[in-house]
Design a binder for these strands. Structure first.
Lengths: 366, 366
DNA sequence: GTACGGAGTGAATCCGCCA
DNA sequence: GTGGCGGATTCACTCCGTA
């Protein structure tokens, strides 16, 4: 196991984060991503209108006896995380209205300085079955730096490239973790609140550099570690449930990182002009994967921010294609081909069509 | 000026809300909408608490003092609003990450029970000019009831209708207040944070009924009053800046309310209940007639008192159905089928609909 | 193979009136 | 206040079986 200044790297420490965090050195990690218990407190069994019962979160780790108990717990892990963070470090926390106001208020009191809050808008949220409230369709992320005014990492150009060459906004549209990505054991979900990798992809790419150290004190099924490994960041997870630890270890073990240049070349050139990055976030393409111009050569490599690298050329699928065509106006979606698992070549546009319509913004925009 | 139990209605009280709120009666208003200031400097000057003098050079203490001053201010107006609210009342607060975590945490501590948080996603936000953070493209609204478990108004059907017959979600897409709606004086914005009427329209329609009383302790340019008047709700505004008071008065004066039926016919309440026995009384069903669970089996017999007998079970259409569904809450009207004279099976609800038209729209005299 | 329909499900503080 | 009981209430997506 790699280790830097007493900080173990790329591993999972099994145990309660309130016991393990105090053993970690100060000023050691670049970023913390925390997905703490939400303290949901659903009062009764919930049924859908078709009489099926909702498999709600009722895990023991999500139960607190009072608001005060939750605050005590929150203050403890937040202040330890602050100590462990480098002065230039930032903290991400995700939550819902059940807990995010507790967390947000406490982190301000501890000296964190909020840089943004972000809303993860779920394209496929659970409806409100009983018509009693608004459908809870989002979760909130707070992004804060350890100390007001310190330098911090924000990869503005990478975020812009990932977002159709427009500034990345505070509203993020992503589906919940379903389908093949959702880890299941004997058909049962392995973790009740597994986060989608697309969410962590954006978090990690926005606020860390390759080689940075990311701490996740509520590691769960290990999404943070999986994305960190893909993007050549170091991770350190803390998780107290040995079953989750085992699941996360196996998951991360199976990850093949993107080729290093695909990650390191990010930020070196200009931005693309098309939402190509969404295919990466969705996992339809991987950083480092080759693309073939007109289905043949030359070959290009996909970078982690949605740019291509082809020989000495770097840029969007359109920019590079245009250069290859002596500046003729062209559409990269039709000119670049990817190889699918069967070995056949198809134009990128196939993937764009496949990309769930869920990725695009809702239509009702009164 | 109209007035109910010492509460002036449809008017603006000029003065600081911390001075005026204590003069209002308790348990008097149905809803509060608050758009509080979050300018710490302003609050610091006006509401500085009587604490020991702190060293302004020390960043930590400076931060503590500002947060504390803001919290003191927030706790004061929130707790007064809670007193003035009816037990069945709800509170809305809008803010950004600068203040919403203070407000959210404090209102929970004061006993408010959060029902939802909502995000107003701006279709036209101000970009981040420095490229140092994500573009702030949203504001957060918290919707909370005065007391956990109390009855509250949520016009589910009205919200659903407003959203193309889909449940209204917690993400609201609305432009900022621009164009003709934006009040200008000599070309200058009359108020720096004028809220769009579309936002208040949704808030008011969701959580109040015609004739309800809405209190806005930070009235500003009077958007709350304008929408309340349009929708036949009463408003009471508090605003300390006489210029804003004047602007808001003129604005509301010019509003023409919607035609009353257009507001009253909005389906905000349940329809009167029709007991199953009424079908027997009306002769649409006969005692002894069989009913079929979900159109198949088991079969039940209608008793003369409107109960069903199904095997060893006896009870209402709901009770028996519930027992057959392992105690899942259910609606017997949709689960039991009757056979009509042609031999076809239909849910009981068909008969209820026939009856209800007869019940509520009696024929004119023959 | 493909098209289609039905079943399953997801971080959710999820009923309300009346006696 | 509380117990009893009538009855209102779901969206987007995936998976799987069948034609």
């Amino acid at each position: 196991m790699e280790s830097v200044d007493g900080l173990p790297l790329d591993t999972i420490l099994e145990g309660d984060c309130l016991e393990i965090l105090p053993q970690l050195p100060s000023n050691a990690v670049d970023m913390v991503f925390a997905d703490p218990p939400y303290n949901l407190q659903l009062q009764h069994a919930l049924y859908r209108p078709n009489f099926t019962r909702v498999d709600a979160v009722d895990d023991h780790w999500d139960r607190f006896e009072s608001l005060t108990a939750y605050d005590t717990f929150t203050r403890a892990w937040l202040s330890e995380c602050r100590r462990v963070l480098k002065d230039t470090g930032t903290l991400w926390v995700i939550g819902t209205y059940h807990n995010i106001y507790r967390v947000g208020a406490l982190l301000q009191e501890l000296g964190f300085w909020i840089l943004n809050d972000l809303v993860w808008i779920k394209t496929n949220p659970t409806p409100n079955f009983h018509g009693t409230r608004f459908t809870n369709a989002h979760e909130t992320l707070i992004w804060a730096q350890k100390t007001k005014g310190a330098k911090y990492t924000f990869n503005y150009q990478a975020m812009k490239a990932l977002n159709e060459d427009l500034q990345m906004r505070s509203d993020w549209y992503l589906p919940t973790c379903i389908g093949n990505e959702r880890i299941r054991i004997n058909g049962e979900k392995a973790h009740s609140t597994q986060k989608p990798e697309a969410l962590l992809y954006r978090v990690v790419l926005a606020s860390t550099q390759p080689g940075d150290i990311i701490l996740d004190p509520f590691f769960g099924s290990g999404t943070t570690g999986a994305v960190a490994k893909k993007l050549h960041r170091h991770y350190l997870g803390i998780e107290r449930d040995p079953r989750y630890v085992q699941i996360a270890r196996a998951r991360i073990q199976a990850i093949t990182p993107a080729p290093l240049p695909a990650v390191e070349w990010v930020e070196t050139r200009r931005r693309p002009r098309i939402p190509f990055g969404a295919l990466l976030e969705a996992g339809l393409l991987q950083p480092g994967q080759p693309l073939y111009f007109r289905g043949g050569s030359p070959e290009a490599i996909i970078l982690a921010n949605g740019h291509l690298r082809c020989g000495e050329l770097t840029g969007s699928i359109h920019t590079v294609a245009r250069a290859l065509l002596n500046n003729a106006p062209c559409n990269g979606w039709d000119l670049w081909y990817y190889r699918d698992e069967t070995g056949n070549l198809y134009p990128l546009n196939n993937l764009r069509l496949r990309l769930s319509s869920a990725y695009f913004r809702p239509k009702n925009t009164d």
